[in-house]
Each structure stands twice: as C-alpha cells, then as structure tokens.
Amino acid sequence: MRYYLYSRIFYSYNMKNNFIILLAAVCFLFSACKKDNPISSTENQRGRVKLKFDHIVGGRVLQLGSATYTNAAAENYSIETLRYYISNIKLTRQDGTVYTVPKDSSYFLIDASVENSLFPKFQVPVGTYTKLDFIVGVDSLKNTEDIASRLGDLSVDKGMYWSWNSGYIFLKMEGKSAASSSGNYHFHIGGFGGYNTQTINNIKAVSVDLTKAGSSAVQEGLSSDIHLMVDVSLVLDGKTPFSIKEHPSVMFGEFSTSIADNYQAMFRHDHTHNFQKIAGE
C-alpha cells in the first residue's frame, strides 16, 4: 500500500512506469550506497562545500525594495520578497560517481533578505567534483511526510507552505509594479505533483557544470566555496517571457509551470574558491 501510494505521488504521469522508475531508483540507491561505503580511506575524510547564492537582476546586484528594474515587456518592477527552496543536493566526481548529500541535511530555504540563508553548507567526502545538482523546491515525498520530519527550514510556519492545498511553496517572489492594477505582484510557485491525484508538478531539477568556471576540490577540514549567480530577472524574462500586467498574481494554476520553467534556468556557476580555511562559523 505504501509503495503503491508513493509510486503514485512521485513525478507521476503513468503509474506503471512510475513504479518501475521508483523500483529502479531504490535499487540504484542501494547500489550507490554500496559503492560509497567500502574501504577507500578518503571516504571517511570530509571537507566542506559552501554554496553561495548571489542574487542579481540582469547586470545589477539585487536590492530588495529600493531598486526599480525593467522586464522585457518594458514594465517597471521592484522586488521586495525573494525566497525559494533548494533541496536534494548531489555532487558528481570526475569519474562520474555521485555523492548525495544526506536528504535531511539538504533542505535550504534561500531568503534574499536573510544573509545567513545565502550560504548553504554541508559536509562531503574529499575529492574533486565537476557537477552540482539540486532541486528548486521540495521533493514530492517530503511534501507528504509527517510534520515531525519537517524540521528547520521545512517547518510549515515559514510562510512557504500552502495550508489549504497542502504543499510547500517552492519560490515566492513579490514586489511592486505600476503594471499591475493593484500596484503589487505575487508569484507563489509550488505544486509537487499531487498526493493521490496527479496535479501540477513544479519540482525543477537544476544541473550546474562546474568544469568551466572551476571544479570543486574538497580537502579534509577545508571548504570549497561554489559561487552561483542567480539572475532573478529570468523569473520574468526566461524561456517564456510574460508581462506583469497580464499575470500580476500567479499561484496554484497552469501558468505557474511557465514561471517554474523560467526560474529553473536562472542559476549560473561563476567561480569556485577551493581550500578555504573554515573559520569558527
């Protein structure tokens, strides 16, 4: 019954296929764990990776509230709130093997107004990593779990949770714009695929190639700081540019999928600082 349920809630399109995919995923997980565990002394040696989410709007640094930006539809807007979840982080080594950050240590709520939230940190085995993967949002399984497992950033009292249609808000962006008749715009994007009926799935996987701007070399006791540029203008002007006038308030509805597609592409690797000393952080 439980398998059946989870198979249905996973990124479901076809239930049968899902089940097979789930089984495959479980098998993969087990085999992956086996590969990760044995001998290699380096496995027990840990270093740290620190991600840095640097928010920009086109060619400018994001200034919450005060600055005015212009979208492709020539509408002016400000950004007062920008929050989104990052989760299910994975790092791929040069040889193609993957290190998956323990799931419950990989949920981070990035909030442009909270300095501390911009630097997710986690321990990884030493090695050189060439690819970073994460989800923008919260995986479907976590969306259905008991509240006891919704700790820290996942607490439902963070203002990133829909109470009436149970599920996390993956990205929240709000601000002012004269293009909107109310003077404000709200984008609350969520949708994990549905509990037992297939619904909108806005879980977006992001894959960042680290080779061009500097692989992440992790040494024991040292930090590798992966610096990402996040171009927030792409939320509006990405794959599907749209006007605030036409879509001043986007929440749980069809159009939210276009916005999710847009922000999926807003992350770019800028550079990496390897072998950083870890201060008493």
Binding site: T144, D146, I147, V156, S163, W164, N165, S166
Partner: peptide
Amino acid sequence: DGGVHNLDLSSVAPIEN
C-alpha cells in the same frame, strides 16, 4: 475539497486563512 491529507496539517488552514 480534500486539499489536506494529514490531520496534523489540517489546523494550519483555518488558522492562516
């Protein structure tokens, strides 16, 4: 509408509405 599937999360809806 069955929008919530866990009793523990059901109280959030009236509280925050």
